[in-house]
């Protein structure tokens, strides 16, 4: 009798799960988490006319859903020193994060190949601090942008091992950005507001691009991801120019799973 009740319970559970998968629709999801280290080349004419070079640490998280919804968060921290200086080595510390979300459309022109085109909306906020400066010790970076995203994913085998090659590029196309005016202090901004500091963002104010080439190696419950990331963040506005050109090697994992949700 007890065995019978257990069987009924198990059957009901399977049925419920089955019905949920039909009515709610099983939603495939892919989550990626990466962290990495690399080099960065910086210049910020609000702080210094010199080029700085050093290392950066970065983390990246992304979720992609079968519906095409995609959301990604990236954070980074850098420590750089002037390239040319021989006598003194002041240090600049930088950091920032970006958040983007949007939709992607997928095509599968041939077996094993997936091409992606999409649009993201998001923001980037960061700061670069130069330890040596007086009343202009730091410069903030901030923009709200809409980006175009393209991707190519190719599944192939080496021997019996299935591998995945994944390329993805995000390029902000239009938005608004923040920049202090040429000789304006942040003290002045704090007293008088950001008038004149919020400007339209487009290719003319700086070409920005984040591109990543990754290879996924399947392990037990997830895939190991090894990636190269090239991150170009730059801006030219109010006669102030800055750039962060980063190259990073990243490692992380990709998990693919199916969610069954009630509608």
């Amino acid at each position: 009798m007890v065995r019978c009740i257990s069987s009924i319970k198990a059957s009901l559970l399977v049925l419920v799960l089955f019905l949920l998968s039909i009515h709610a629709g099983a939603q495939e999801r892919e989550n990626t988490f990466q962290f990495g280290i690399g080099s960065v080349h910086q210049q910020d004419t609000y702080l210094s006319p010199l080029n700085y070079k050093g290392w950066q640490l970065s983390v990246f998280w992304m979720t992609e859903r079968q519906s095409g919804f995609v959301c990604q968060v990236e954070g980074h921290f850098s420590r750089t020193m002037p390239v040319s200086t021989t006598l003194a080595k002041p240090v600049a510390y930088g950091g920032g994060f970006s958040f983007d979300a949007g939709w992607e459309h997928h095509w599968r022109p041939v077996e094993g190949l997936r091409v992606t085109l999409g649009a993201l909306g998001g923001l980037y906020a960061g700061v670069l601090y130069n330890e040596r400066n007086s009343n202009n010790p730091a410069n903030a970076r901030f923009n709200i942008r809409f980006s175009a995203t393209v991707g190519v994913r190719y599944d192939f085998h080496v021997g019996k091992t299935p591998l995945r090659l994944d390329y993805k590029a995000d390029m902000p196309v239009i938005g608004v950005l923040f920049s202090p005016q040429y000789g304006q202090s942040y003290y002045d901004i704090s007293q008088n507001g950001v008038g004149g500091c919020i400007l339209p963002m487009w290719f003319g104010t700086g070409f920005n691009l984040r591109q990543q080439l990754a290879i996924d190696i399947p392990l037990k419950n997830f895939s190991l991801r090894v990636a190269y990331v090239n991150d170009i963040r730059q801006q030219s506005a109010n006669d102030i120019k800055w750039h962060d050109w980063g190259h990073s090697a990243m490692i992380g994992f990709v998990r693919r799973f199916t969610l069954i949700k009630n509608r």
Binding site: P82, P90, R132, S134, N135, N136, Y187
Partner: peptide
């Protein structure tokens, strides 16, 4: 004039009135 800072290629720092 509120001073700002900048620097030279050799590493010397320069301060100047900016505002």
């Amino acid at each position: 004039g509120m001073p700002f800072s900048s620097e030279l290629p050799c590493g010397w720092s320069v301060r100047f009135s900016a505002c």
